[in-house]
Deep mutational scan, measured.
Amino acid sequence: TETYETTDETEARKIAEELKRRGLTFRIERHGTTIRIESD
């Protein structure tokens, strides 16, 4: 499991693209301005 936290929408998108490219599944949670991406 890898966890990323960012407040930057663009960075979050880049992380999501990278995880997809590596064939990982992940979920995105939003907590206020923080975007949390957690891979399975």
Rank of each mutant, 00 (worst) to 15 (best):
E38W: 15
R13V: 10
E18F: 10
I37M: 01
L19W: 06
F26P: 08
A12W: 04
L19E: 01
R22N: 04
T6R: 01
T1N: 10
T7V: 06
E17Q: 12
T7S: 10
E11A: 07
I35K: 00
E29P: 00
D40M: 15
I35Y: 10
R22S: 04
E38M: 15
E17Y: 10
E2S: 08
K14H: 10
K20Q: 11
E38G: 03
E38F: 15
A16P: 00
T25K: 14
G32C: 04
E11S: 05
T1Q: 11
G23F: 02
T1R: 14
T6S: 03
H31A: 07
R36C: 08
E11R: 05
G23P: 00
R30N: 06
K14A: 13
T33G: 12
T7N: 10
E29D: 07
I15T: 02
D40C: 14
E18I: 08
T7G: 06
R22H: 04
T7P: 03
E18R: 08
E17C: 15
K14P: 00
E17W: 11
H31K: 09
G32L: 03
R13M: 14
L24P: 02
L24R: 11
I15M: 05
G23W: 02
G32N: 04
E38T: 15
L24W: 07
I35F: 09
I37S: 00
I28K: 02
I35G: 00
T10H: 13
R21V: 06
E2D: 06
T1A: 11
R36I: 12
E38S: 14
E17K: 10
T7C: 09
I37K: 00
I15R: 03
T10V: 13
L24V: 11
L19R: 00
F26S: 03
I15L: 05
R27D: 04
L19M: 06
T25R: 14
R21H: 06
R27E: 04
E5C: 13
T33V: 10
D40G: 12
L24C: 12
D8F: 04
E17P: 00
T33I: 10
I28P: 02
D40N: 13
I35E: 01
R27Y: 07
T10L: 13
R21N: 09
R13E: 12
E5W: 14
E29R: 08
R22E: 03
T34R: 07
D8N: 09
R27N: 06
R36L: 07
A16G: 06
R36S: 03
A12M: 05
E18N: 10
R30I: 14
E11Y: 08
T3V: 15
T7Q: 11
R27F: 09
E29K: 09
E2C: 15
T6W: 01
E17M: 11
I28D: 02
T1I: 14
D8C: 06
T7I: 06
L24K: 09
G32I: 02
I35Q: 00
F26R: 01
E2F: 15
E18M: 14
R21I: 07
E11T: 09
S39L: 15
D8W: 04
H31I: 14
I37W: 00
T10R: 10
H31Y: 12
I15N: 01
Y4P: 00
A16S: 08
D40R: 11
T10D: 15
H31N: 12
K20N: 08
E9C: 13
T25Y: 10
E38K: 11
R27Q: 06
I15H: 05
D8R: 03
G23H: 04
E9L: 10
G23K: 05
L19T: 00
L19S: 00
I37G: 00
T10Q: 13
S39W: 15
G23Q: 03
I28A: 02
R36V: 09
I15Y: 10
I35R: 00
G32M: 03
I37N: 00
L24Q: 06
R21L: 08
T3K: 10
T1S: 11
R27G: 03
Y4M: 02
E5Y: 14
R22I: 03
I35T: 02
I28T: 06
E2L: 15
I37V: 04
L19V: 01
D40T: 15
D8V: 04
T34P: 00
R36H: 06
T6P: 02
K20S: 11
T1W: 14
R13Y: 12
R21W: 04
G23C: 12
F26T: 04
A12L: 04
Y4H: 03
R13G: 07
E18G: 08
T34L: 14
L24F: 08
H31V: 12
E9N: 04
A12T: 01
T3Y: 14
E2K: 11
R22M: 06
R36D: 00
I28Q: 03
A16K: 06
D40S: 14
A16F: 07
L19A: 01
R30Y: 15
E17F: 08
E9Y: 09
E5A: 05
A12G: 03
D40Y: 15
S39I: 15
R27A: 04
T25Q: 11
A16Q: 11
D8P: 00
H31D: 12
R13K: 11
T25E: 09
E9A: 09
L24A: 06
I15S: 01
F26K: 02
E11M: 09
D8L: 05
Y4I: 04
E2N: 10
E17D: 11
R30E: 04
E2A: 10
I28G: 02
R13H: 11
Y4W: 14
I28C: 12
K20H: 11
I28F: 06
E11V: 12
F26L: 05
T34W: 10
T6G: 03
E38Y: 15
I35V: 04
T34G: 05
E2G: 08
A12S: 03
G23L: 02
T6L: 07
I28N: 01
T33M: 11
D8T: 05
S39P: 07
I15A: 02
I15P: 00
H31T: 09
T25S: 13
T1M: 10
Y4E: 00
R13I: 13
E18L: 08
R27H: 10
I28V: 10
R27T: 13
K14D: 06
T34D: 02
T25N: 13
E29V: 14
E5P: 01
F26Q: 02
E5K: 04
I35W: 14
T10E: 15
R30S: 05
T25H: 14
Y4S: 01
D40A: 12
T3G: 04
R36A: 03
I15E: 01
R27S: 07
R30H: 10
A16N: 01
K20E: 11
I28M: 06
E2Y: 15
S39A: 15
H31F: 12
E9R: 06
A16E: 07
R21G: 07
E5R: 04
L19Q: 01
K20T: 14
T33L: 13
D40H: 13
E5T: 11
F26W: 04
T25W: 11
R21S: 09
T6Q: 01
T1K: 14
I35D: 01
L24Y: 09
S39N: 03
A12V: 05
E38H: 14
E9V: 07
F26M: 04
E29S: 14
A16M: 15
A12Q: 01
R36W: 07
K14C: 14
L24D: 03
R27I: 10
T3I: 15
T6K: 01
E38Q: 13
E11K: 06
T34Q: 06
T25C: 14
K20G: 07
K14R: 14
E38R: 11
L19D: 00
E38L: 15
G23T: 01
R36K: 08
D40L: 15
R21T: 06
E5H: 06
H31E: 09
E5F: 12
E2I: 15
I35H: 01
E9H: 06
E2T: 13
T3P: 03
K14L: 12
I28H: 01
I37D: 00
S39Q: 07
T33Q: 12
L19N: 00
I15W: 08
E17N: 10
T6D: 01
T7D: 12
G32S: 03
H31W: 11
L24I: 13
R36G: 01
E11L: 11
R30K: 09
Y4F: 09
E11Q: 08
I37P: 00
K20A: 12
R36Q: 03
D40E: 12
F26N: 02
E2W: 15
E2H: 13
